[in-house]
């Protein structure tokens, strides 16, 4: 047996479960990417947030006991019986950091999808992963009618660390989505060895 397995009842080997986050603004292609590379159509689950989950400050003094439902799309890729990779599309930015924290916990890293027509939409994702020291890459999803910027221009506009890979992709294409995931995993591996000890990069 490979290392990293957990033993289930009666010694049944359970798969090593890993996850990657797919982040970015609304309509940037997160669900499309998850679907193009996963073994089934994207699955959907939801979290119900009470006022507590959203943040007490936001609702201080508000009497209503309202709840908010946050939906997440995700996909699964199995590699034999031993290893599973889950891809989670992050839900809408800005409001649901509670859910982001839950999703980011234990993630290998993140892909930030960007659309050059609305680059600012991905700033909150970039900020979040920088703040939480989660390794990420930026994948520019090329919508047909978008003007092409050079990757250096994108990098400059995002003012990210020069080591963070920035690449083009087409989230609808399986091969392109595979390249994105491989680029991220290589980057995570490099970040870890650069850190020199078993800590997330940058911490």
């Amino acid at each position: 047996m490979e290392s990293g397995h957990s033993e289930g009842e009666g010694g049944t080997a359970l798969p090593t479960a890993t996850k990657i986050l797919i982040a970015g603004g609304f309509g940037v292609g997160k669900t499309t990417l998850v679907g193009s590379v996963s073994e089934t159509a994207p699955l959907r689950t939801e979290e119900i947030l009470s006022e507590k989950g959203i943040g007490v400050d936001d609702l201080a003094g508000v009497e209503s006991k309202s709840t908010t439902t946050v939906a997440m799309d995700f996909g699964r890729i199995s590699f034999g019986e031993d290893l599973v990779l889950y891809l989670f599309g992050t839900p809408g930015q800005d409001r649901f950091w509670f859910v982001w924290d839950e999703l980011a916990h234990g993630a290998l890293g993140a892909v930030v999808l960007a659309d050059t027509r609305r680059l600012a939409d991905c700033f909150p994702s970039v900020d979040y992963f920088e703040r939480h020291h989660l390794p990420f890459i930026v994948a520019v999803n090329c919508f047909d009618e978008a003007r092409r910027y050079s990757l250096d221009e994108v990098k400059l506009a995002l003012s990210i660390d020069p080591d963070v890979p920035v690449m083009l992709c087409d989230a609808r294409q399986r091969e392109s989505s595979k390249d994105v995931l491989i680029t991220l995993i290589e980057h995570v591996r490099k970040s870890r060895s650069r850190a020199g000890d078993p800590q997330p990069a940058g911490s």
Binding site: S3, G4, I185, V188, R192
Partner: peptide, 19 residues
């Protein structure tokens, strides 16, 4: 398992090759 405690990078290798 927190991936930071994985003993080596065999998991990374397996993911890359698998994808």
């Amino acid at each position: 398992k927190p991936h930071t405690t994985l003993p080596d990078d065999s998991v990374f290798e397996a993911l890359i090759n698998g994808i």
